[in-house]
Amino acid sequence: MEPIVNTNMLLPMAITLFVLGVAISMFKVLREYERGVIFFLGRFQKVKGPGLIIVIPVIQQMVRVDLRTVVMDVPSQDVISRDNVSVRVNAVIYFRVIDAQKAIINVENFLQATSQLAQTTLRSVLGQHELDEMLANREMLNNDIQAILDARTDGWGIKVSNVEIKHIDLNETMIRAIARQAEAERTRRAKVIHASGEMEASQKLVEAANKLTTEPNAIMLRYLQTLTEIAGEKNSTILFPMPMALMDSLFKEVKQQSKDKN
């Protein structure tokens, strides 16, 4: 015998299951870093979360928003510096959503919008600086780009916390030119240091000469000390100049002896 199905029981059971399914789907759980933007019949109602929330099916819709910091890599951009040097620059930006309502309502896709804005801002800011400034003042450039991005994304409910230029790629010709420039700079510094040393040495020699002239026997003692140092090196032949002062004293002594004999 075929089982007899009571049609009067099916309708209440179906309604019960439908109501139970709707009741279960009403409950949503949002994590600590998530918020739910609630729309009531297409109009914004409120931002809910975190924790357990109730969303009425059909008449309410929820859009989840992640509030954690997003690390986004900015693709390499071709930049022409103010001194007409072509470089490729890569950067990374750190940002997060601080206003879920603005991030969903004011912009279609805040991730894509932030990425495109970061690329154009990177080219615009770096194009206003020379190559030497790009290589030497990265911290200043990072702060400038971060300030511009933060101001422009404020209407999207996004906070740009940091921007870092990762690397600047140069062509081989420019790398060789920079190497020659660095070599020339080091040569210039060496010459300046050598000239400064010569100036200081000359000043010290003048001071030493002034002190030696105050005592006539001091120059003779210094001369004898120099001869002693030379003799200590065990040289077979020693050539040394004869001081004119010593020659004058010898000539005076010879003339005095000649006069005494006469």
Results as ranks from 00 to 15, higher is better:
127 G>D: 00
189 R>H: 00
98 I>T: 13
145 I>K: 07
90 N>F: 11
236 S>T: 14
172 E>A: 07
67 L>T: 02
233 E>Q: 09
125 V>W: 01
35 R>W: 04
87 V>F: 01
8 N>Y: 14
167 H>I: 09
253 E>M: 12
112 Q>A: 12
227 L>T: 09
194 H>V: 06
214 T>E: 14
236 S>Q: 12
17 L>I: 14
257 Q>N: 09
152 R>A: 07
127 G>I: 01
21 G>D: 05
229 E>M: 09
194 H>Q: 14
136 A>T: 14
87 V>S: 01
72 M>Q: 08
153 T>N: 12
84 N>L: 12
118 A>D: 01
141 L>T: 01
232 G>A: 03
258 S>A: 08
214 T>C: 06
7 T>P: 15
170 L>H: 00
41 L>Q: 15
5 V>G: 04
115 S>I: 06
172 E>D: 06
173 T>R: 14
99 D>F: 12
6 N>K: 13
84 N>W: 04
122 L>A: 01
69 T>F: 03
48 K>V: 15
119 Q>I: 07
254 V>D: 03
106 N>P: 00
37 V>P: 03
186 R>V: 04
82 R>D: 07
54 I>D: 01
246 L>M: 11
64 R>E: 00
253 E>T: 09
239 L>D: 09
99 D>Q: 11
80 I>P: 02
22 V>G: 06
246 L>A: 08
28 K>Q: 12
154 D>G: 11
112 Q>L: 09
145 I>M: 03
58 V>M: 10
164 E>V: 13
180 R>W: 13
85 V>I: 10
15 I>R: 06
78 D>I: 11
72 M>P: 02
64 R>N: 03
210 N>C: 05
232 G>W: 01
211 K>P: 05
10 L>V: 10
168 I>Y: 04
27 F>A: 07
206 V>Y: 10
38 I>A: 00
204 K>V: 01
39 F>W: 08
203 Q>R: 09
61 Q>Y: 13
52 L>H: 03
63 V>W: 05
106 N>H: 07
170 L>T: 02
218 A>Y: 03
63 V>D: 05
59 I>F: 10
12 P>V: 05
120 T>M: 11
128 Q>D: 05
197 G>Y: 03
261 K>Q: 11
256 Q>R: 12
36 G>C: 02
148 I>Q: 13
136 A>P: 04
176 R>L: 06
155 G>I: 02
75 P>K: 04
202 S>G: 07
139 E>I: 06
61 Q>N: 15
71 V>E: 09
123 R>K: 14
206 V>E: 14
169 D>S: 14
191 K>M: 15
243 P>Q: 05
154 D>S: 09
30 L>Y: 04
245 A>R: 13
101 Q>N: 08
9 M>A: 14
247 M>W: 04
53 I>F: 03
199 M>A: 09
172 E>W: 04
127 G>V: 01
108 E>A: 12
